[in-house]
């Protein structure tokens, strides 16, 4: 039994030592080692995103390293990582998830330090990279307005305009009582306008839904004149429909996605190389043109004009991971 344990430790040793060994080397050696590994396994909670696929394809083309994707919902990815690591199955290299889940998994010890990543120097400091995670892209939230129903003069100019009695029963919203865009909107508005804002919004009787894609189309079809919070990156997939994104004067709530290296990643060099690739201005421009706020400086200025205008608005606030469940409970209390 003891012998088996010892053999297990010996077998795991090279994998544990791999990133540390590469740390002192220059970046070219990391690139060569990554190419030799030839493969990268990427666990992500971003399901079916065509924009991420573009960035993966560019990486494969540039370095000849195949990216294998495992996509599932945030908690499913997290549980898979936890169970696999507990069982000694170290299959994934990188983990891409919302900042709350990343925070929880960092606390649980699911990651390892990623080592030096040259492009980290370009990251906007408000997105807080550290030795375990790099910021990936930022989802920004606005209001979706049906242009056939709402005249430009009637569009809400402030988030507080949602409290106007004329919108009673006419707001479709992502649920504030569950993880997702609604759970980002709730604490940001709470911090900006206090509990009273939510009590008044609850009196407006918003209709909650948890299927974002269907909700956006319900608004586009005219079932509801307003939908919130609307992911800016979905604007691209709805081109041609009578909807527009409006960012009220106070700004846009946002939530960050992070990338971290999983503990005992089998392709640690490829993982580092990919993290660096993700922070390249070209990669970030793909996300920015899609409507995500880029995390490196100097990219917003190069985005498509209609997107640039929206992304140049003020970043209003985001979630506080340690308080997430407390916020969900408060939302349940207010929105019964």
């Amino acid at each position: 039994m003891r012998r088996r344990k010892l053999l297990g430790l010996l077998a795991a040793a090279p994998a544990i030592a791999r990133p540390a060994a590469a740390q002192g080397d220059d970046w070219n050696k990391v690139v060569e080692a990554a190419k030799k590994e030839g493969k990268l396994v990427f666990y992500t909670a971003s399901i079916g995103s065509p924009f991420h696929k573009k960035v993966f394809d560019a990486f494969e083309k540039k370095y000849g390293i195949k990216v294998e994707l495992l996509e599932a919902r945030a908690s499913e990815v997290r549980e898979r990582v936890r169970v696999e690591q507990t069982a000694g199955r170290f299959l994934g290299d990188l983990h891409h998830n919302g900042s709350t889940t990343t925070w929880l998994m960092t606390r649980d010890g699911n990651f390892q330090p990623h080592g030096e990543i040259p492009n980290i120097k370009n990251v906007d400091p408000i997105y807080e990279p550290d030795d375990v995670k790099i910021p990936a892209e930022v989802i920004s939230y606005s209001l979706m307005v049906n242009k056939n129903i709402v005249k430009p003069d009637d569009e809400p100019k402030s988030w507080k305009d949602l409290l106007d009695p004329k919108w009673q029963g006419k707001i479709l919203s992502d649920d504030y009582r569950a993880l997702g865009g609604g759970a980002v909107f709730f604490p940001v508005m709470l911090k900006a306008f206090g509990r009273e804002f939510h009590e008044k919004l609850a009196a407006q009787k918003p209709v909650f839904s948890r299927d974002i894609q269907n909700s956006e189309r319900r608004c586009a079809r005219g079932e509801f004149p307003l939908y919130l919070p609307f992911n800016l990156q979905d604007l691209n997939t709805l081109k041609g429909l009578p909807v527009k994104a409006v960012v009220p004067a106070e700004g846009r709530p946002y939530v960050r996605f992070d990338i971290s290296m999983l503990k005992n990643a089998p392709h640690a060099n490829a993982a580092r190389l990919f993290m660096n690739h993700y922070l390249e201005p070209e990669s970030q421009l793909v996300f920015a043109n899609a409507g995500y706020a880029p995390v490196v400086r100097g990219v917003v200025e190069k985005t498509l004009p209609e997107i640039r205008e929206l992304l140049s608005t003020k970043a209003m606030g985001t979630t506080d991971p340690p308080k997430q469940d407390e916020m969900l409970a408060l939302a349940k209390e207010i929105y019964k």
Partner: peptide, 10 residues
């Protein structure tokens, strides 16, 4: 679904 996927801590 709420308990497993819709909370910060499932």
């Amino acid at each position: 679904f709420d308990m497993i996927t819709q909370r910060a801590q499932p």
